[in-house]
Nucleic acid binder design. Structure first.
Length: 213
DNA sequence: CACCAGGCAAGTA
DNA sequence: TACTTGCATGGT
């Protein structure tokens, strides 16, 4: 195993090049996107975020006090809109109450503290918390998602249904140097690979860039 | 038409 | 702990 994790990274980076994630302009926008993209195609999240921008709603002060139903209507294209409106405002209320609405100071918390604070929010689980830590707060934690699981299992690095989030995360973090920029690229590369070569509906892949590892 | 997409929480046994 | 279900739009 030792260097399979590093080798996969080198292969993906060589094949696709740098991905320059997260697709979002500010840490706040990245945080919002992380909640909206739960179990949802990113293209639909883009529509939701565009709506928020077009109506000048994409700011902390506005979103935190917007009636949930109004927020829900604007994020409709990304699905689960009632649920996500509530989840997003749960997070914003925490920042409002505990950090006086200062998103930057919230994101400046030490990694373990920030992660715990995020996980305490109803509607934020491990992937969303880690995405915010890595992509909004630039802290060194590896993000695991459905693509990550699928790619690992298709390359026989984990059992298809026998690995939970923490286990997969540990496989990556144990096999890699603690490097925020590299964690950022690596997860983005896995998503890129997943979208283009490792779809659920495409069980086998003869042209996978990882073939032969 | 069926299936899938950068999850999560609550309920049940 | 380990399964099951609800949440929902939009693309293929």
């Amino acid at each position: 195993m030792e260097n399979r994790i590093s080798e996969i990274y080198r292969r993906l980076f060589g094949f696709f090049g740098p991905q320059s994630w997260w697709p979002g302009e500010t840490p706040f926008e990245i945080m919002v996107g992380a909640v909206l993209t739960q179990n949802t195609a990113w293209i639909n999240v883009e529509k939701a975020i565009k709506n928020l921008k077009d109506f000048n709603l994409l700011s902390f002060d506005i979103l935190v006090s917007l009636p949930p139903q109004v927020l829900a209507e604007h994020i409709r294209p990304c699905g689960y809109y009632n649920l996500k409106a509530g989840r997003l405002q749960n997070l914003l209320r925490l920042i409002d109450e505990e950090f006086a609405g200062d998103v930057d100071s919230f994101l400046d918390l030490e990694l373990a503290v920030l992660r715990q604070a995020l996980l305490a929010v109803k509607g934020i689980g491990r992937e969303t918390a880690d995405s915010i830590c890595l992509y909004a707060a630039n802290k060194p934690i590896f993000v695991v998602d459905a693509y990550t699981h699928r790619i690992l299992s298709r390359h026989d690095l984990v059992l298809e249904d026998g690995a939970d989030y923490d286990e997969v995360q540990e496989i990556f973090m144990a096999g890699l140097p603690e490097d925020t920029a590299m964690f950022n690229e690596y997860h983005a590369l896995l998503v890129r690979l997943g979208k283009e070569y490792c779809k659920k509906s495409k069980p086998k892949c003869d042209i996978c860039p990882l073939k032969g590892l």
